[in-house]
Amino acid sequence: MALLWPGGSLAEERHFRLSVPTALLDSGLMDYLLPRFSLKTGVRIEIVPDGTEAEMTLGPGEGRAVFQGEDTLWRMRLTGDHPGAARFADWLTSDVGQRTVTSYEIAGHAPFSLPEITEKVVASPVFDGDATEGKRVSLLHCGRCHVVAPENRMGTIGSTPSFAVLRTLPDWGARFQSFYALKPHPAFTQITGITSPFPANLPSPIVPIEVTPEELEAILAYVAGIDPADLGAPIQVQ
Score class of each variant (00 low, 15 high):
residue 1 M to C: 11
residue 1 M to A: 15
residue 3 L to K: 10
residue 4 L to T: 09
residue 8 G to N: 06
residue 15 H to N: 14
residue 15 H to Y: 10
residue 15 H to E: 15
residue 16 F to H: 00
residue 17 R to Y: 01
residue 19 S to G: 12
residue 20 V to Q: 03
residue 20 V to A: 11
residue 22 T to G: 08
residue 22 T to S: 11
residue 23 A to P: 05
residue 23 A to I: 09
residue 23 A to S: 11
residue 25 L to T: 12
residue 26 D to K: 11
residue 27 S to H: 04
residue 27 S to W: 04
residue 31 D to A: 15
residue 32 Y to S: 13
residue 32 Y to D: 12
residue 33 L to C: 05
residue 35 P to Q: 09
residue 35 P to A: 05
residue 40 K to C: 01
residue 42 G to Q: 05
residue 45 I to G: 05
residue 48 V to F: 07
residue 48 V to C: 14
residue 51 G to R: 03
residue 52 T to F: 07
residue 55 E to L: 03
residue 55 E to H: 06
residue 57 T to S: 14
residue 58 L to C: 08
residue 58 L to W: 13
residue 60 P to F: 05
residue 63 G to I: 03
residue 65 A to E: 12
residue 66 V to T: 04
residue 66 V to N: 02
residue 67 F to G: 08
residue 73 L to N: 10
residue 75 R to N: 12
residue 76 M to K: 14
residue 76 M to Y: 15
residue 77 R to S: 15
residue 77 R to K: 14
residue 78 L to M: 13
residue 80 G to E: 05
residue 81 D to I: 09
residue 85 A to T: 02
residue 87 R to F: 06
residue 87 R to T: 13
residue 87 R to K: 10
residue 87 R to P: 00
residue 91 W to I: 03
residue 91 W to E: 08
residue 93 T to A: 08
residue 94 S to M: 06
residue 101 V to Q: 11
residue 103 S to Q: 12
residue 104 Y to P: 00
residue 106 I to L: 11
residue 107 A to Y: 12
residue 108 G to T: 09
residue 110 A to M: 00
residue 114 L to Q: 08
residue 115 P to W: 02
residue 115 P to M: 09
residue 116 E to M: 06
residue 117 I to Q: 13
residue 118 T to E: 12
residue 119 E to Q: 04
residue 122 V to A: 04
residue 123 A to F: 06
residue 123 A to K: 09
residue 127 F to C: 00
residue 130 D to S: 05
residue 131 A to Q: 03
residue 134 G to P: 03
residue 136 R to D: 10
residue 136 R to H: 09
residue 137 V to G: 05
residue 138 S to H: 02
residue 140 L to K: 13
residue 140 L to E: 13
residue 140 L to R: 05
residue 141 H to K: 03
residue 142 C to S: 05
residue 143 G to T: 01
residue 145 C to I: 06
residue 147 V to D: 06
residue 147 V to A: 10
residue 150 P to V: 02
residue 152 N to T: 12
residue 153 R to V: 04
residue 154 M to Q: 14
residue 155 G to K: 02
residue 155 G to M: 00
residue 156 T to K: 09
residue 159 S to V: 15
residue 160 T to A: 11
residue 162 S to G: 12
residue 163 F to K: 03
residue 166 L to M: 14
residue 169 L to A: 15
residue 170 P to G: 08
residue 171 D to W: 01
residue 172 W to S: 08
residue 175 R to W: 01
residue 179 F to Y: 15
residue 180 Y to T: 05
residue 181 A to D: 14
residue 181 A to F: 12
residue 181 A to M: 14
residue 182 L to C: 00
residue 191 I to F: 11
residue 192 T to C: 02
residue 194 I to T: 11
residue 194 I to P: 09
residue 199 P to T: 11
residue 199 P to Y: 06
residue 200 A to I: 04
residue 201 N to E: 15
residue 202 L to V: 13
residue 206 I to W: 10
residue 207 V to T: 13
residue 208 P to K: 02
residue 209 I to Y: 01
residue 210 E to H: 08
residue 211 V to P: 03
residue 215 E to N: 01
residue 215 E to S: 02
residue 217 E to D: 07
residue 218 A to G: 05
residue 219 I to R: 03
residue 220 L to N: 07
residue 221 A to E: 07
residue 221 A to T: 00
residue 222 Y to Q: 08
residue 222 Y to C: 08
residue 222 Y to R: 08
residue 224 A to K: 00
residue 229 A to D: 08
residue 230 D to F: 07
residue 232 G to W: 09
residue 234 P to L: 01
residue 234 P to I: 01
